[in-house]
């Protein structure tokens, strides 16, 4: 188990959104305010880690030919159970994160990591993979939220920072955020799907550029050493 490599893979070199291009659908749909990014990110970290553990524990029992069908059953069942339990026992949290949970069922990061990692690795490594890949996903979501929210509405921390009632952090999506410029100057298109594609495209390009650059540097170093 190589924790450091897994950490770097999850956040940078194998970032689920920017490099593996997984979970784009939810990334495009929800990154309109900081609250959404943090809420969805946390939900995915928890569920991805749990699903990875379950799939990894069952990896010797699951026949290879029908593994995808079984992943779908396990993930959908698991997410629904979490949803029901949250609704019944922690209604406040369910209210805040309820809209994200059904999105997770169809989030291909979960099935992608089951297939690519949990099915071949030990329970411990799979749990770490879930946490790190989830963190990588959250990082991108937050970056996109900050960019899109700023350009669209001129705010920072929408839904999470409540400046109207004194400066405090709320976790129910009602805070108005800090206004950096009046909202009617914002480019509303950035909050719509078009803006999502634009932002994601730019981020992916930037990521590829940086990755390539660091690779070049590495090979140059190698050549110089030879």
């Amino acid at each position: 188990m190589n924790v450091k490599k897994q950490f770097k893979d999850g956040l940078i070199t194998q970032n689920p959104v920017l490099v593996q291009l997984l979970g784009m659908c939810s990334t495009l749909a929800i990154t309109t305010s900081l609250f959404n990014g943090v809420g969805m990110g946390l939900s995915v970290i928890v569920i991805l880690t749990c699903c990875n553990i379950v799939i990894s524990a069952l990896r010797k029992v699951i026949p290879n030919d029908i593994r995808i069908a079984i992943y779908v059953v396990v993930i959908a069942g698991f997410v629904t159970i979490v949803d029901l339990l949250l609704k019944a026992f922690i209604p406040a949290l369910s209210e805040a994160l309820g809209v994200f949970i059904p999105l997770i069922v169809v989030n291909c990061i979960i099935i992608g990591r089951s297939e690519a990692f949990a099915a071949k690795n030990s329970v411990g490594a799979s749990a770490l993979d879930g946490i790190f890949q989830g963190l990588g996903y959250t990082l991108v979501l937050v970056a996109m939220c900050v960019i899109r929210e700023f350009l669209a509405k001129g705010t920072f921390g929408g839904g999470m920072l409540d400046v109207a009632n004194g400066f405090k952090v709320v976790f129910n999506g009602t805070g108005s955020g800090i206004h950096l410029f009046p909202s009617h100057y914002g480019a509303l298109v950035m909050a719509l799907p078009v803006g999502g594609f634009l932002t994601l495209g730019c981020l992916i390009a930037l990521m590829q550029h940086l990755l390539r650059k660091s690779e070049q540097k590495k090979s140059e170093k190698k050549e110089a050493a030879e």
Partner: peptide, 24 residues
Amino acid sequence: VLFAFGAVVALLLGMVNMVTEGRI
């Protein structure tokens, strides 16, 4: 095998639903 997985998940879902239905 697929049937068994489906049955176990369905059973779990049913049980959780029974516990939470009233409260929800």
